[in-house]
Simulated scan of single mutants.
Amino acid sequence: MPRTIYNTATTLDGFLADDSDSLDWLFVVPQGHDGFPAFLDTIGAIVQGSTTYEWVVRHEDLIAHPEKWPAFYGARANWVFTTRDLPAIPGAHLRFVSGAVAEHWSDIAESAGDRDVWIVGGGDLAGQFADAGLLDEVRVSVAPVTLGSGRPLLPRRLESDRLRLESVTQNGQFAELAFSVRSPDAA
């Protein structure tokens, strides 16, 4: 079975995006080494919510420039959880689904093959995986930015009996934290 990893960046005050769903704050923070390509090599399937998908499509103008898609996600299976119709990127391996994450888990896991599943965002979707006992790890890059409000990192209550700090590293101005996540049944 693949592991499910929520790997994202957040502000110091725990927000993924501002009140307008923008990630512009993220791209002005200096980074050090880029370990992202090595992480992406371990990923067989990607899961994201509709707001995250819409932001990437809009920010990169992917409807007009679908050739940019591989730079983000490659040829990996990409699952978008949504309750509305969204535009598809020509040539992208996309599956638009709705409902409980557990209903789609076996198909997502199968599409990942012998690699892991990356939850790109958002926080509520990662929380749904945690609620279902399907979240194995949270990797958070904390930026020296505060927004005061916006989209929360993980709008769920997860107590310390479910989260275990596994590592802390510095990447430029980011503090990278990795936590293992225990299933609610095991906590």
Score class of each variant (00 low, 15 high):
residue 174 F to T: 08
residue 103 E to N: 10
residue 167 S to W: 06
residue 73 Y to P: 00
residue 64 A to M: 03
residue 106 S to L: 05
residue 95 R to A: 13
residue 149 S to E: 15
residue 92 A to R: 07
residue 169 T to V: 14
residue 75 A to G: 13
residue 155 P to I: 07
residue 105 W to H: 14
residue 177 L to G: 05
residue 152 P to K: 06
residue 64 A to W: 10
residue 98 S to K: 08
residue 79 W to M: 04
residue 153 L to N: 01
residue 138 V to R: 09
residue 184 P to K: 06
residue 82 T to I: 10
residue 74 G to D: 11
residue 179 F to S: 07
residue 179 F to A: 08
residue 152 P to H: 08
residue 54 E to K: 09
residue 71 A to V: 07
residue 120 V to K: 00
residue 73 Y to G: 04
residue 66 P to W: 11
residue 118 W to R: 01
residue 79 W to R: 05
residue 80 V to S: 06
residue 89 I to H: 00
residue 71 A to W: 08
residue 168 V to L: 14
residue 97 V to I: 12
residue 63 I to Q: 11
residue 60 E to N: 15
residue 146 T to L: 13
residue 82 T to D: 05
residue 157 R to W: 14
residue 61 D to Y: 07
residue 130 A to C: 02
residue 90 P to S: 09
residue 129 F to H: 04
residue 119 I to K: 00
residue 139 R to C: 11
residue 89 I to K: 01
residue 172 G to W: 02
residue 76 R to V: 07
residue 142 V to R: 06
residue 131 D to R: 13
residue 152 P to W: 09
residue 73 Y to F: 14
residue 174 F to G: 05
residue 101 V to D: 11
residue 76 R to L: 04
residue 143 A to C: 06
residue 103 E to Y: 07
residue 165 L to F: 13
residue 176 E to Q: 12
residue 132 A to D: 12
residue 123 G to W: 00
residue 150 G to C: 03
residue 57 V to H: 02
residue 124 D to T: 12
residue 78 N to W: 09
residue 122 G to R: 01
residue 105 W to K: 00
residue 126 A to R: 06
residue 136 D to V: 05
residue 105 W to Q: 09
residue 57 V to Y: 10
residue 165 L to W: 15
residue 136 D to A: 11
residue 65 H to W: 13
residue 151 R to M: 11
residue 106 S to T: 14
residue 165 L to R: 14
residue 156 R to A: 13
residue 90 P to Y: 03
residue 65 H to T: 09
residue 180 S to V: 12
residue 64 A to L: 07
residue 92 A to V: 03
residue 82 T to G: 08
residue 80 V to W: 08
residue 135 L to S: 07
residue 81 F to G: 07
residue 89 I to F: 05
residue 77 A to E: 13
residue 78 N to R: 05
residue 83 T to Y: 11
residue 108 I to N: 02
residue 175 A to W: 13
residue 176 E to F: 06
residue 136 D to W: 09
residue 123 G to I: 03
residue 58 R to D: 15
residue 138 V to M: 11
residue 145 V to P: 03
residue 81 F to T: 11
residue 86 L to A: 03
residue 173 Q to P: 00
residue 58 R to H: 15
residue 171 N to C: 10
residue 156 R to N: 10
residue 153 L to R: 05
residue 78 N to I: 06
residue 139 R to T: 14
residue 146 T to A: 14
residue 86 L to S: 01
residue 130 A to W: 02
residue 67 E to Y: 03
residue 87 P to F: 06
residue 166 E to C: 04
residue 62 L to K: 03
residue 121 G to S: 04
residue 143 A to S: 10
residue 60 E to S: 11
residue 71 A to M: 12
residue 141 S to N: 15
residue 145 V to A: 03
residue 70 P to T: 07
residue 95 R to Q: 11
residue 66 P to L: 03
